[in-house]
Design a protein around this nucleic acid. Structure first.
Lengths: 247, 247
DNA sequence: GACATTTAAATGTAAGACAAATGAAAATTG
DNA sequence: CAATTTTCATTTGTCTTACATTTAAATGTC
């Protein structure tokens, strides 16, 4: 592990990269203790703040965790799916908002990927998944639910559908696609009628899943996608019409 | 933006979180300059190294970039798809290796998601995508290609297939699934015969895509998946047999 | 007005100090 | 001797101060 003091990059960035590469390459294994900050200072011939900045970079990516005290130090962190979820969701959300990704494009991506789970979920869903989905359907039917709560329940519902595939990698990948859509979904105001329609589709989805009818799940998801997109379009045009009227 | 000096978390972690929340909430917009380190010191009532550690955490997530000099400082960074790719790939790779995800599970997830692109790619692929795919097929047919190069070409081929969907969100999501598989794929030794079979399937895939035959693409992908899994299984059992013989 | 120089502001890096946590060894006590 | 308490060394967390380097703008010079 070497660093170049004349590089354009920060020393801390170089050191972080060197350590990260060692982790990725398997030279440092999970739960292994890194050298102490003082030892890293000697090893890389830099000051302690620089070493610390490097370690914080790694900590921000959940690659290491630190512990104070006598037998403390920095340890290679086992990256868990749950932690990776969160990072993926915030990254995906920022990607959508910062790159002005349209509702249509995001929606298309989400449902395309979600449909990919249909065969797996139909084959492997457990009663637990179905129960979660029906519970969320019930919640969504409650009058007086705020739009935010409705969207949150929608996310939980779809996550249960995805988790039904019984494949953690699929769940991880889809978490970003599904949850990152939520801010965009929150812009939609759901009328009583549109909620009713969505609840109907959710019910159909759950029924098909219970019947292990993969094709039925896929086609229902397609219907839900087009309905969601229509809903978004009508709201956009409605807003445009109102703006027109005011002008 | 407030921080709690008595929290169990590091001060730098709290400050980073506060700034990150402000970015996610849209209070700080792209290319906007953050307060200088000295100002942040005043604002949060902490020392400069602490502020800097917080900024490095954000830089590690590509949320900010820093610039030296008179009108320098830290700026909110536009998170681009390309940067996010890399992070996603390393995160996905580490998830697979650190959680001992089996080849089957990873492979299933990858092909399930990739099949989801089939209808979109069939509808939107351009001659460019087809040309890239055929070029990679040609490369894969070259004798004397190392296994690593073969795998790398395989990744390029599949990325072109995925990019054909013409949806950047899909490309982003799939980048992790496809590229993170490469280390696992690299464990496979490809014989001349297996390479021939894969090249045939790739050719079929490209032909179907050219014909805009979505179902054909899907079924060919399914065939490729099962062949890949069979290949991995035979290699595992072969190794087990040899180990048996030695013992 | 064009060009060279200076200056100021900002980040990058270094060095040293102390605080706080923590586990282990040593001392104390029953 | 065993159990408990104390002490101590190690390590990270934080602060202070200082200097180096980069960069753009202000200033001066011709």
């Amino acid at each position: 592990m070497k660093i170049d003091p004349d590089s354009s990059k920060d020393l801390s960035a170089q050191i972080a990269e060197a350590i990260r590469d060692a982790i990725v390459a398997g030279e440092l294994i999970v739960d292994q203790r890194l050298p102490s900050e003082a030892e890293l200072v000697d090893q890389f011939q830099v000051s302690r703040p620089t070493v610390r900045e490097a370690l914080k970079r790694l900590a921000a990516q959940s690659l290491i965790r630190t512990q104070r005290g006598a037998s403390g130090g920095a340890f290679v962190n086992r990256l868990r799916f749950e932690e990776a979820y969160d990072q993926q969701v915030t990254t995906s959300s920022l990607l959508l908002s910062m790159n002005a990704v349209s509702f249509d494009v995001a929606c298309e991506a989400r449902y395309a990927l979600e449909r990919a789970c249909a065969p797996l979920s139909a084959a492997r869903r457990t009663p637990d998944h179905l129960a979660t989905m029906r519970a969320e359907i019930h919640r969504q039917s409650q009058p007086g639910l705020t739009d935010e709560a409705f969207c949150a329940s929608d996310v939980t519902f779809h996550r249960a559908l995805v988790d039904g595939a019984g494949n953690p990698v699929v769940s991880y990948q889809l978490a970003g696609a599904v949850e990152a859509m939520q801010p965009l979904m929150n812009m939609i105001t759901f009328t009583a009628r549109s909620r009713e329609r969505i609840v109907d589709l959710h019910t159909a989805l759950t029924d098909r899943l219970e019947a292990r009818d993969a094709l039925g799940v896929e086609s229902t998801l397609a219907t839900l996608e087009s309905y969601t997109r229509d809903l978004a379009h009508s709201i956009v045009t409605e807003r445009a019409r109102r703006a027109e009227t005011i002008t």
